[in-house]
Design a protein around this nucleic acid. Structure first.
Lengths: 351, 351
DNA sequence: CGGCGGTTTGACTCCCGTCAACCAATGTGG
DNA sequence: CCACATTGGTTGACGGGAGTCAAACCGCCG
């Protein structure tokens, strides 16, 4: 049932009006001033508010102001019911966002008509917005339909040399990649030409799926860190698969969710961690990704520049930090490689 | 740009008024009577209609009647602009569903205020309705599943005050959240207690799905930026849905993929951008997320501290940067709010 | 031998984080 | 009702971390 909040300080008018409205089969909540009205509004969430202007404690303008500031209440139709007949008062009320302005004395019919008119209007508004949304959904659906016809079997294998590019930022994705051997990194470049390595991939990883799933262009560049072997899966095949195979969809959902978490963690690191800690993290994440087996100590062959781009710094700064680490016996480092000596201390590195 | 239809038979008033509105940067269509007005309305689909009452051929009431009968046009705000100052005329106009009633003579300010007030109101309506529709769709989907019996009671709605916590890092997720009104942010804290805001959410967004999908604990904390209303969807319901409903799975895959892209972009920013640029980006991302409509300028009420956490810096540094921006006339800022004056320059900010 | 790419070190600068103080507004408790 | 505490915003002074530019070094190959 439609619920109406009536805010009016004069007891007689309030009770009379409430009675009329109840006879018209509305559910009524009442309040005798703006402050009380706001409290009742919060609690009851009426479908419409009728409100006097001149009231003690908090007047009608004040109440309307509060209502408009509240995200939950601001879309409720608001009608002023007042003895203030001056043009200035009327304009002020309307400009503040009231939906109607009824001057006393008024007839029952006027009041009821005004209410119905506003309720009607509110209903139309919400219908309208909802139907726009429906149309979008509809087109969304069509897009996925006719992929079914074009099923072509394509499982190509490619060999890549070191530092070779697989795809570049801005390209349109045509395929999903599966790294069967080697190492891949993806990176972005900012306006000043500085590189940041975003992700590392190892044998057995899929990559390049993000642009496909988001249905957009690549947002990063992928290149090999060393010689690699890559399987290419056609876009259509992948789409059919993910749309029709529950398991595949679940796998990618989980993968994506994990990616998001990882990136969030990286964000926090880059934002506030010292260079020392960022370099330590970079080394550890390489270790985590590429270390062959649990017990053994880890050595990676990587250029200073590449390592710097993982830590988000410059080559020179990275080198200084590596020197520090070397002096502290945390790592062993010579041109072209880094070997982790004390993983625990790296892990506990303070900022 | 906002388009306004002005229907008025008096040439002088029409042209004068149109001129005022054009100066206020609205796009204007005109008509000199109700019939013509209806034709123009159909063709132009204005964002707002201003209309005289007494006109030849078809009067203002007639036009409003036609507009209300037309499904495409009926939700357009409608303002009468008339010499008819009688209470009866006013009531008739409002009862027919007009949104405001301005009597001649009127001042420019009155007219412009009335227009802005109604446009604002219309925006709120559609936002609100669209977000409600989203959730309804979602539950429509749920209903079709065979787990019907379990989830009848699962649509819980919660009210949160400003700065209240929804979930905390490390908690186990029990539900999916849907923000039906208000604003939410998620953030992480590093060992030194520094906060970084990871994501912002607006009415109509889902949040908290990442931990569910990854099948792990929350990796970030979520709290309200202002008073909010949140729908809670039980974990089981969500899991059934996403595992069995192709459309829902696709929706979340796309959402996740987009999240990843966003985070990657943020990574690059945090890694190498100057404080100036990061602050500019923070302001712009707020604008992008919370700006109501295209043309209007954007004001956000946010504490310095919160803004600093979005930019990944300290409150003091943020304040200095804001002062610089203010001196450069890029923004207007006083305690508790920031207003964007020159979006383009903020966007083109160099490092 | 000279050039070249990658690495390392040095010197300098400056951005920005830290600490401290102050102000204004708001709330609070006696 | 006022003194007082508290909170958020702002400004100033200071210093260190890390980026920039330059130069030296080193191994390698033709």
């Amino acid at each position: 049932m439609t619920k109406i909040l009536l805010v009016e300080d004069n007891d007689e008018i309030r009770e009379n009006t409430a009675e009329i409205l109840e006879m018209a089969n509305y559910q009524i909540a009442t309040a005798s001033n703006g402050k009380e009205g706001y409290e009742v509004a919060l609690k009851e969430e009426p479908d419409l508010i009728i409100c006097d202007i001149m009231m003690p404690v908090l007047d009608g303008y004040g109440l309307l102001h509060l209502i408009n500031k509240n995200n939950i209440l601001k879309s409720i139709p608001f009608i002023f019911l007042t003895a203030k007949t001056e043009r200035g008062d009327f304009r002020k009320g309307m400009e503040m966002g009231a939906d109607d302005y009824i001057t006393k004395p008024f007839t029952d019919i006027e009041l009821l008509n005004a209410i119905e008119s506003r309720l009607q209007k509110a209903r139309i508004q919400s219908e309208r917005a909802a139907s726009a949304k429906n149309l979008d959904d509809f087109f969304e659906e069509i897009k996925n339909e006719d992929a079914l016809e074009k099923l072509t079997d394509s499982k190509i294998m490619n060999r890549y040399k070191k530092k070779q590019r697989v795809y570049a930022e801005g390209n349109h994705p045509h395929s999903l990649y599966y790294l069967s051997a080697g190492k891949i990194r993806t990176y972005k470049i900012n306006e000043l030409g500085k590189e940041l390595t975003i992700s590392l991939f190892n044998a057995g990883d899929f990559f390049g799926y993000n642009a496909l799933l988001e249905n957009s262009v690549y947002k990063e560049t992928a290149e090999t860190l060393e010689e690699s072997e890559i399987n290419v899966i056609g876009r259509e095949d992948f789409e059919i698969l993910i749309n029709n195979n529950k398991k595949v969809a679940q796998k990618f959902i989980k993968l994506l969710a994990h990616n998001v978490s990882e990136k969030e963690e990286q964000l926090l690191n880059l934002a506030y961690n010292s260079l020392r800690k960022r370099v330590a993290d970079a080394i550890l994440s390489l270790s985590k990704k590429y270390k062959k087996e649990e017990s053994a100590d880890f050595t990676i062959h990587i250029s200073r520049e590449d390592l710097a781009h993982i830590a988000g710094t410059t080559t020179e700064s990275l080198i200084r930090t590596l020197s520090d680490f070397r002096n502290e016996k945390l790592i062993e480092a010579e041109a072209g490689y880094v070997k982790v000596l004390n993983e625990k201390k790296l892990l506990d590195m303070l900022n």
